[in-house]
């Protein structure tokens, strides 16, 4: 079980190199990070997982992009859209994470989409950046979405991940700080520990539902 920050943006998108991110992640208590447009590597004892973040493209294009990226070992995350899009993407084999639920419409992710995500082992991402950098309505909306998400999570038990979406090491938060921030929408420490291992849950080998007993 690896404690993973599900999204960071190293240089040149951000202002910190991937090595620096890895150093900071180690001091913050993480085992691995998912970094955008970065090759897989082991840096300073931290596993760097390449991340492909898709946004603003239709569901059909998502499928073709996922086919191209299959077998690369990258974590594929897709920005959420409307309800139909989310259901289609959640059922797409190869999509690991749905991101950006904090900015989505309140009807964008309902119980049907949650059931599909749970069946297909597709994770929903909890982005901490609107809680850290957002103020007023933006943060209130994000907390509201996450509270709704937690209700669905407790019912359907789909995977969750936590990401800082940090473009700088200053935007990263330690595991202890992430636990505190997640307590704002009703997550306890045990939940956070399980959710931080969400990336290894969605990228690891899938367990068969049916067990053959001989």
């Amino acid at each position: 079980m690896k404690i993973t920050d599900a999204c960071v943006y190293p240089y040149p998108v951000g202002d910190s190199s991937i090595r620096r991110f890895a150093l900071e992640a180690r001091s913050f208590g993480y085992d691995s990070i998912v970094a955008a447009d970065t090759p897989a590597a082991e840096v300073c004892g931290i596993t760097v997982i390449p991340g492909i973040f898709l946004a603003g493209i239709p569901a059909k294009d998502v499928q073709s992009r996922v086919k191209k990226c299959r077998g690369s070992g990258a974590v594929i995350a897709v920005q959420v859209g409307d309800n139909g899009f989310n259901r289609a993407v959640a059922s797409t084999n190869g999509v690991h994470i749905l991101r950006g639920i904090h900015a989505a419409d309140k009807r964008a992710f309902d119980h049907v989409a949650a059931k599909i995500a749970a069946d297909n082992n597709t994770a929903l991402d909890i982005d901490l950046s609107p809680l850290i950098f957002g103020r007023g309505h933006l943060r209130q909306k994000a907390i509201h979405r996450y509270i709704d998400l937690m209700i669905l999570y407790r019912r359907f038990e789909f995977p969750l991940t936590i990401s800082s979406s940090a473009r700088s090491v200053l935007g990263m938060r330690a595991v202890r700080e992430a636990t505190g921030l997640c307590s704002l929408f009703g997550m306890d420490e045990t939940d956070v520990q399980a959710v931080l291992a969400g990336v290894s849950r969605v990228t690891g080998p899938t367990e068969s539902v049916v067990k053959v007993i001989t």
Binding site: S168, G171, G180
Partner: peptide, 23 residues
């Protein structure tokens, strides 16, 4: 102190300077 630490983790700027406060 727990709530205070959570609030500190949301601190990202101080007089137009980007910073982070780590408890």
């Amino acid at each position: 102190e727990r709530e205070f630490a959570i609030a500190l983790s949301t601190l990202s700027t101080c007089r137009d300077c980007t910073l982070a406060v780590r408890v």
